[in-house]
Design a protein around this nucleic acid. Structure first.
Length: 255
DNA sequence: ATTATTTGACCGCC
DNA sequence: GGCGGTCAAATAAT
């Protein structure tokens, strides 16, 4: 429906346009020049939670990868000439799917960086909390208290790590939610998460993508689209909801 | 009306 | 020639 019309007209049109415009412009030189310095790869369940604002500029199916790769650029690419970019691809089809995020170049936009450093600080705290939480759970459960869901080729350590990451990302979500209430200037950041969820989740679990419209309109509520209430097997004891949240008792941690 | 996303085509490297 | 990365018109969302 979408392409039929534009295929014939824009196809040749674009070609001429691009050749015209790129003649001596910046478009060509930063295409493919991609200095690989400043590249960093991350694996995360919440690829959009890095505190920066991204704008999607492309999506591509990569050979050998079952999932498409989404390309993002800093929202301030034009405004501040920020050269930061990243691409996100789903790494597996686990229950909360794991994503691989490759960052290229650092942000030069100061405004976003400020909020991001804020974000990093809290994320590190959360990481510690989740880590300690899992460690505690591990020691308390020397004999398996409940049947562990067998994961594909997963050792117990791997399962623990997965669970830990899930907790971290979910905590980030909640914290971000409350941050949004306090600082309203980051409220629109959620759009990219919604889009990514739409793109990537649509492939593994269409039922989830069905609700993405609501999610995108209320950006601060549910950036992480966890597949559903049926994730009993995962052992997550909390929901990603800003007002319904009782994940871990932190009393033992704070002491 | 403005802004963000989608998507087919183009470009350069390997 | 294949592939990954990018562009930009069309489209959707706000």
């Amino acid at each position: 429906m979408r392409g039929s019309n534009m295929l014939s007209s824009s196809g040749s049109n674009k070609r001429a346009l691009q050749q015209d415009c790129s003649g001596g412009s910046h478009a060509q030189e930063h295409t493919k020049k991609k200095s690989r310095i400043g590249m960093r790869t991350d694996y995360t369940y919440a690829p959009y939670h890095d505190g920066f604002q991204w704008r999607k500029y492309g999506q591509k199916v990569i050979r050998g990868n079952a999932f498409p790769r989404c390309y993002y650029r800093c929202t301030y690419h034009q405004d501040h000439g920020c050269s930061a970019s990243k691409h996100v691809e789903q790494h597996n089809s686990a229950d909360p799917p794991l994503f691989r995020v490759v960052y290229t170049n650092d942000h030069t936009c100061s405004g976003a960086a400020a909020s991001a450093s804020d974000y990093m600080a809290s994320s590190m705290q959360i990481q510690q909390i989740a880590d300690a939480s899992l460690r505690k759970a591990d020691t308390e459960a020397e004999r398996p208290p409940r049947p562990q869901q067998p994961r594909s080729g997963g050792s117990y350590a791997a399962a623990i790590k997965e669970e830990k990451d899930a907790i971290v990302s979910s905590l980030l979500t909640v914290i971000r939610g409350s941050c949004d209430v306090v600082k309203s200037d980051t409220a629109h950041e959620g759009y990219s998460s919604a889009s990514l969820a739409t793109n990537c989740y649509a492939m593994s679990s269409p039922s989830v993508a069905g609700g993405s419209r609501e999610g995108s309109s209320s950006s601060s509520v549910s950036p992480v689209v966890l597949p559903a209430p049926d994730d009993m097997g995962l052992g997550l004891d909390f929901m990603v909801e800003s007002h319904w949240f009782e994940p871990l008792d932190l009393g033992w941690f704070v002491e």
